[in-house]
Amino acid sequence: MSTTPKPDAADGIAPGGATRGSDRPTFWGRLTHAGPYRAVTDFVFASTRRQFILLAALPIVWVLFAHLGPILQMIRVSFLDSYPPAVGYTPQFTLDNWASFFKESIFIKPFFRTLMFSLSLTFATLVLIYPVAYFLARHVKRDNQMLLLLMLLIPFWVGEIVRTYAIMILLGNTGAVNLILKTLGLIDRPIPFMFTGFSLSFGIVYLTSLYMLMPLYSALEKIPPTYTEAAADLGAGAWTRFRRVTLPLSLEGISSGCTLVFLISTGLYATPILLGGPSTTLFSQTIAGFFHVAGDKWPTGAAFSTIMLLTALILSGTFMKLIGSLTRGPQK
């Protein structure tokens, strides 16, 4: 911050007194003494209550309207028999949209597949990323940590579509992996990686792994190395040190990393379309289907979205609470 020695143009007081000979007040002096400004501020700051109301009004309206509004409307629509409303017809209340979820296996299957996929991939990502985060936080010199982390962040900034496409090129029938296997003489015909559970899992982990890395890294980085040294001094072996010191102290990172990855993977839409096949249809595709086909299937889509949202939030909420009770357990 200190490396910006430019004075505000608005003030016009040059450093070193180079500019002199001005008999005008500065911008802020003129502003604060201007009649309209004074009238407004005198009104606003007349009472702390009024001040607070004016400060709080916009945020409260914004979060209620823009953040909560869409969700509430989605829930409302899920109980209507038709939406968007046709001209001259008032939609009626119905539970059919919710009921249809439990009636047809074509809906329930993708739902549970999504849950299983998301849960198992979250766990896999955790196992894969923990050593990476640990290595970065504990075995790399402070100065290099940022560099190595930055390197991992670059792919992270590239969007879902571009990265999914990269995976398609890697795993396609004429992709790099098949080319290598063929050149090595391990296969004659390309292995059909694409449009399977494998390619989808591979892609999802590829997309979400950094959301696991960041919280894990920051949790691990906060643990002072003296803690494990103290444990070693007291005779704890490597495994015990990890299990009794490092792991409990990184639980917070595990909790937020897993929650993030889980919520993101349940919400992916383009990736299952591009990488998955008919046998791997996920619930996001089911939901989206109600909005693509003609006809008024929106309420069913809304009901299914609500089911999905509630399930995802309840699962991750329970998980975070569980981890939370662990951290406040015997270690502290």
Partner: peptide
């Protein structure tokens, strides 16, 4: 207020998109 502020960040992408679509229609 804080919870509601953070809400859009924890809603899975597809659901967020769908809810915006419905709300835009409203």
């Amino acid at each position: 207020i804080f919870g509601l502020t953070i809400l859009p960040a924890v809603i899975p992408g597809i659901i967020s998109a769908i809810s915006f679509r419905i709300f835009a229609n409203l």
